[in-house]
């Protein structure tokens, strides 16, 4: 690989948009993705806040379209997992990117768009019963719970939106939240409160997920009263926030306490020739629209810096 190449790490909306802009600027661009392009959008049943799709659009369809668009302008893709990055010691030198398979790539610039992954609850039973009633993807697994009783854990946008989605299949959805009110946007709250299939359990955390071959019940603790209880469910969908996929950059670029990468307005990180875009970056609003905007800005900044501008 020539060292005037721009490497984009991650194929979600931020990475794909950076690719569209970089390819159109005729920068040799390679997108490295661990599994395949998509990111968190892939598990979103419907995206209703991305402008230009008045009826909403399925997450996977939006990603398919972004990928097709990047390919149209000549995007090169490869599979790989980045395990470490070494920024140039002095200007004119390449960024060195080490992959899990032992290969090291030299690049003229690197845009980090590795996004974020969902958090686990970290309670007994969660790992053991994953895929057997414990789920992190309502659009994937919802249809297995026809006429069933499922719990949703969380109180943010994702938890509430997916609880509403699950009422298409489940006869009853119990939303369990550790606070006494939802954090989700008002529109979603209104929809959830108006839905007769959704009930709410407030101030409560899940202490364990129980069952032998499949999820059978949850042990709950009310944080306010200290009262413990058990609720029978057929499945539990967990949406308790995200963490940035930036562990491999620890010590390489500056991050905040949660591991989100700090950047300036041009998406430059603290290390030369390295930019960050999308959900892995510290910013006030993690959304598809802000991810694509980051991607464009990062590609433009890289273009200027790499001498293509």
């Amino acid at each position: 690989m020539k060292s005037d190449t721009l490497v984009i790490a991650g194929g979600g909306p931020a990475g794909l948009t950076a690719a569209i802009y970089a390819c159109r600027a005729r920068i040799p661009t390679v997108l490295i993705e661990k599994v395949s392009p998509g990111g968190q959008v892939l598990i979103t049943d419907r995206v209703d806040n991305y402008p230009g799709f008045p009826e909403g659009i399925a997450g996977y369809e939006l990603v398919d379209r972004m990928l097709a668009q990047a390919k149209r302008f000549g995007l090169e893709q490869r599979n790989g997992e980045i395990i470490s990055v070494q920024p140039p010691a002095r200007s004119g030198e390449p960024v060195k990117i080490s992959l899990a398979d032992g290969e090291t790539i030299e690049a003229g610039g690197l845009i980090i768009a590795t996004g974020a992954s969902h958090n686990h609850l970290g309670v007994p039973g969660e790992t053991e019963l994953a895929g057997r009633g414990v789920s992190y993807c309502a659009t994937c697994d919802g249809p297995f719970f026809n006429d069933a009783h499922v719990a949703v854990v969380g109180g943010g946008d994702t938890a509430v939106q997916e609880a509403i989605f699950l009422t298409k299949f489940a006869k009853r959805v119990t939303l369990i939240h550790r606070r006494d009110q939802l954090r989700a946007i008002k529109l979603l709250q209104e929809e959830a409160f108006a839905n007769p299939k959704i009930e709410f359990v407030w101030d409560t955390v899940v202490e364990s997920i129980n069952g032998t071959d499949k999820v059978e019940s949850l042990s709950l603790l009310n944080k306010k009263t200290g009262e413990k209880s058990t609720i029978s469910v057929d499945g539990v969908f967990i949406f308790v926030g995200i963490h940035p996929n930036t562990q491999f950059l620890k010590g390489t670029v500056e991050m905040n306490q949660w591991g989100f990468i700090k950047t300036d307005e041009e998406m430059r990180t603290s290390a030369p020739s390295i930019w960050a875009a999308g959900d892995c970056r510290e910013k006030p609003l993690l959304q598809i629209v802000t991810a694509v905007a980051d991607g464009a800005v990062a590609a433009h900044s890289a273009e200027l810096s790499m001498g293509h501008g």
Binding site: G38, L42, G59
Partner: peptide, 14 residues
């Protein structure tokens, strides 16, 4: 797999 499952589509080429 199923058609409505995004991650299923993601691993299909692999």
């Amino acid at each position: 797999w199923a058609a409505w499952c995004g991650p299923c589509r993601a691993i299909a080429p692999m």
